[in-house]
């Protein structure tokens, strides 16, 4: 019992830590942006948390939908699938806006320098939409492929989605910051 908990727990932990160190490396590479866009660092944990939440619930719904036979295990945009995509996308836009606004408000509350309400808002929104599109495609394709191969998407998708989310989100934040810096916001 002890050995099993230890072994299985440690394996899962080491896999996600490996991916997260690379996400962290990406974060360290964008030190320039973090310096030039004050307040950006505040949104990093919240942004990752949001991605994990929205990606995780999408994966979980896809798992249920596939098991119930509501979503066909085919790479084809059905009505059920498109409702899921639209819902996930809209929730993502809404929450990205919340994350951006929160970063500015934290700056105001704690007296940090802020790149500005509009800049932080746009930063979260652009990065949010970019990462959402990439991750939604990956999640849907993986879930359907996994189900076709006889794997249970409920079991295999969760850890995947959250760690992959971290890995995709950081470069998206970086890209969005470069876009904003280049237009001089």
């Amino acid at each position: 019992m002890f050995k099993k908990t230890l072994l299985q727990g440690l394996t899962a932990q080491l896999v996600s830590l490996t991916i997260d160190v690379f996400a962290g490396l990406g974060l360290a590479f964008m030190r320039g942006s973090l310096e030039e866009l004050p307040g950006m660092l505040i949104m990093v944990p919240a942004f990752l948390e949001m991605r994990g939440n929205i990606g995780g619930t999408l994966a979980s719904r896809l798992g249920s939908g596939l098991h119930m036979g509501i979503i066909e295990p085919k790479l084809k945009m059905s009505k059920e699938l498109s409702q899921n995509v639209m819902g996930s996308f809209a929730l993502n836009v809404l929450e990205s806006a919340v994350v951006g606004l929160l970063a500015h408000f934290m700056c105001v509350i704690f007296g940090f320098k802020s790149a500005g309400l509009l800049t932080l808002f746009l930063l979260a929104l652009i990065a949010g939409v970019m990462s959402n599109v990439i991750l939604m495609v990956i999640t849907i394709v993986f879930a359907i492929k996994a189900y076709q191969k006889g794997l249970d998407p409920d079991i295999v998708m969760g850890p995947y989605v959250t760690t992959l989310g971290d890995l995709v989100s950081i470069p998206c934040l970086f890209l969005a910051s470069l876009v904003l810096l280049s237009v001089g916001l």
Binding site: G39, L41, N53, I54, L91, E95, V98, A103, M106, F110
Partner: peptide, 20 residues
């Protein structure tokens, strides 16, 4: 999804503020 996600991003923003 909105309520639970909003609560968790608020909590995580405090982690972000500490880093900042």
């Amino acid at each position: 999804g909105a309520l639970s996600t909003t609560i968790s991003v608020i909590v995580s923003s405090f982690a972000g503020a500490m880093l900042n």
